[in-house]
Computed example of a mutant assay.
Amino acid sequence: MSDRRGSRAWKVTGPGGAVAVKANSPDADTAHAKAAEMAQEDDHLLHLTEAGALTPGYRVGAGAWDGGRWLAVNWVDGVPAWRAFTLARGPEGDRPSVRPWLLGIARTWAERLALMHAAGWAHADVQPTNTLIINDGRAELIDYALACHPDHAPLVPYRGAITHTTAPEIAEALLTTPDDTHVTATPAADVWGLGASLFWCWTGHRPVAYEDDAQREDKLRAIAKSATIPLDSVRPWPFPEFEDFITACLQADPAARPSAEALASC
């Protein structure tokens, strides 16, 4: 399915169903780091399953091979959030059937995060690519490699994930600590990432303005200022309830953001 950033992924189908298999690219410059990340994700899946944040059957297997590490998980039959929102991003998305569908995605996305947060974990990589939308409008999380727990020592220091959905406080921490220092992501940062992802997928704009070709440090500095683009200036059509959901997630103060549990039930 993909071969980028030092890792490869396949969909494998057999008598028992379909699984997603990931492995590091053995000849990539990042082979060692990606193998460690793969081992870390497997460790996270075991802990999250034990804590009840994941269904026991999600993790299928993992191990070593000649070129590094591999990991297999149950196949989630959905489409990435960005692609799922295609209709909603245009004016034709303003229809009665789309509104409850969008709210259902937002609430189930928050629900999946709430399960992790209740167990003391943060996903730490909340973004459109790591969330798949099922046909009935449910969101499912994938890719737990960067998940964080305050009492769980990482194999690979967390230095943020995709820049565009990075919470302001995480951006500030990344800018003010050495590159090899672990920064622990929090549930509140996940909530900001949820709001940023919904903002991005619905409007087609990232929530913080910066040039596409800007250096990552410059993008992080812009995010750390907590100045988001006014949602009503870029929304494709008015939807007050959905806009309120997104705006609540994007509060600059982490303490002012609602919990994922509260968002799931709103």
Rank of each mutant, 00 (worst) to 15 (best):
R4Y: 06
A9M: 09
W10R: 01
W10G: 01
K11Q: 10
K11I: 13
V12R: 06
P15H: 08
G16K: 10
A18V: 01
V19H: 03
A20N: 07
V21Y: 01
D29V: 13
A31Y: 02
A33Q: 14
K34A: 10
K34H: 06
A39M: 13
E41S: 11
E41K: 03
D42H: 14
D43K: 05
H44V: 03
H44Q: 07
H44I: 08
L45M: 13
L46I: 13
H47W: 12
A51H: 02
A53R: 06
A53D: 08
A53M: 09
T55H: 08
G57K: 00
Y58A: 04
Y58Q: 07
G63E: 09
G63W: 03
A64C: 10
G67W: 02
G67H: 00
G68F: 02
R69C: 14
W70S: 01
L71E: 10
L71C: 11
N74A: 15
V76D: 01
D77M: 07
P80V: 13
A81C: 14
R83A: 13
A84W: 01
F85M: 12
T86Y: 02
A88M: 06
A88E: 04
R89H: 10
G90A: 14
G90L: 13
R95E: 12
S97I: 15
T108Q: 08
W109N: 05
R112V: 11
L113D: 07
A114M: 08
A114P: 02
L115F: 03
L115P: 00
L115K: 07
W121Q: 11
A122M: 09
H123Y: 00
Q127N: 15
T129K: 12
N130L: 01
T131D: 04
D136R: 04
R138F: 08
D143G: 05
P154F: 05
V156C: 09
Y158S: 00
T163N: 01
H164Q: 15
T166V: 10
A167S: 12
P168I: 12
I170M: 14
L174Y: 07
L174I: 12
L175D: 04
T176R: 05
T181M: 04
V183M: 04
T186Y: 05
A189W: 01
V191I: 15
S197M: 10
S197D: 02
F199T: 03
F199N: 02
W202R: 01
G204N: 05
G204I: 06
H205G: 07
H205S: 14
P207H: 06
Y210L: 10
A214K: 03
A214D: 15
Q215H: 13
R216T: 14
E217Q: 14
I223W: 00
A224P: 03
S226I: 11
A227W: 09
A227L: 15
T228Y: 08
L231N: 05
R235L: 14
W237I: 08
W237H: 04
P238H: 04
F239G: 00
F239Q: 02
F239W: 05
F239T: 03
D244I: 11
A248G: 06
L250E: 07
A252T: 04
P254I: 05
P254Y: 03
A255Y: 07
A255V: 10
A256W: 03
S259T: 15
S259A: 06
A262E: 14
L263M: 05
